[in-house]
């Protein structure tokens, strides 16, 4: 079994391109198992891009290209024999805006298991209940699982999406600004949930909100923007990893002035 401090995912010299344009350059960091790692940084610094390269969601964008090594349990995710479909099952994702399918709550959660070939009603029932309980949504929806997922409130929808993600039993959950579309109370509920989930899952969260990173994460990666004037008036911008450390350390004694200015809220 894994011990605390073991690495679930390692990024080594990762560059991401969109077409000819460099989006993120030379990112190297190690994500620890069963810990919450937060990605912070100003808009356009590429934190979401890096997150999406971890479960190969970038494959879906025409022209996107990832260079360097992204290793999951010792296996390079971009090796030719790796099937992105399997990668995404084991590294799940929760998105910025809650995106339940226009189906019932039950069918939303059962979607993944059904893909994997689970047909038995009893097994599906068990998975749905377990996942909804895992996402602390069960008590609120147990009476009407047939209701459309779209009929839930924003915070409930996001927890439904989390339940849907854990139903396929991933090992890592990537969260791309999961609370940015939620009100403070719903945000609180999702943050509480993360703290419980991290006992079983490795979590990587992209957030725009430094307080949130401080509240929930164990490690924080700060991304920043590099600029270069290619021709006068036309500027190239790309993201780099500015600093990566334990959250308490990064926020109390940042290494660089840029990080310090960002966490003090001077730009962003």
């Amino acid at each position: 079994m894994t011990q605390n401090g073991a690495y679930a995912i390692q990024l080594k010299n990762v560059d991401v391109f969109y077409g000819p344009k460099l989006a993120v350059s030379d990112v190297s960091l190690n994500i620890q198992t069963r810990r919450i790692t937060a990605f912070i940084g100003p808009s356009g610094c590429g934190k979401s891009t890096v997150l999406r390269s971890i479960n190969r969601m970038n494959d879906l964008i025409p022209g996107a290209r990832v260079q360097g090594d992204v290793t999951f349990q010792g296996q390079n995710l971009y090796a030719p024999e790796v099937d992105p479909v399997e990668v995404r099952r084991r590294i799940g994702m929760v998105f910025q805006k809650p995106n339940p399918f226009p189906k019932s709550i039950y069918d939303n959660v059962a979607y993944g298991p059904r893909l994997l070939g689970v047909r038995s009603k009893a097994v599906l029932d068990e998975i749905v209940e377990k996942s909804l309980k895992g996402a602390y949504l069960w008590d609120e929806v147990r009476s009407d699982l047939k209701k459309s997922g779209l009929a839930l409130s924003g915070g409930q929808q996001q927890r439904l999406c989390i339940a849907r993600t854990i139903a396929v039993e991933p090992e890592v959950i990537l969260m791309d600004e999961p609370c940015s579309a939620l009100d403070p109370i719903a945000t609180q509920a999702v943050e509480d949930l993360m703290k419980i989930l991290v006992k079983q899952y490795t979590i990587v969260i992209v957030t725009h909100n430094m307080q949130q990173a401080q509240r929930v994460s164990d490690f924080t990666a700060f991304f920043s923007i590099r600029k270069q004037e290619e021709t006068p008036g036309k500027e190239n911008r790309w993201g780099v990893l500015g600093e990566f450390a334990e959250t308490t350390e990064l926020f109390s004694s940042p290494n660089s002035e840029e990080t310090e200015r960002y966490i003090r809220g001077e730009f962003g």
Binding site: T33, E86, E169
Partner: peptide, 26 residues
């Protein structure tokens, strides 16, 4: 480093999953 943090026995794994995946891709 084989991790299996939260595996239940409800979902197909290993060879069974691979076989299913091949069929789905086909």
């Amino acid at each position: 480093m084989s991790v299996s943090v939260s595996q239940s026995n409800l979902l197909p794994t290993g060879a069974e999953f691979q076989k299913g995946l091949a069929r789905r891709n086909f």
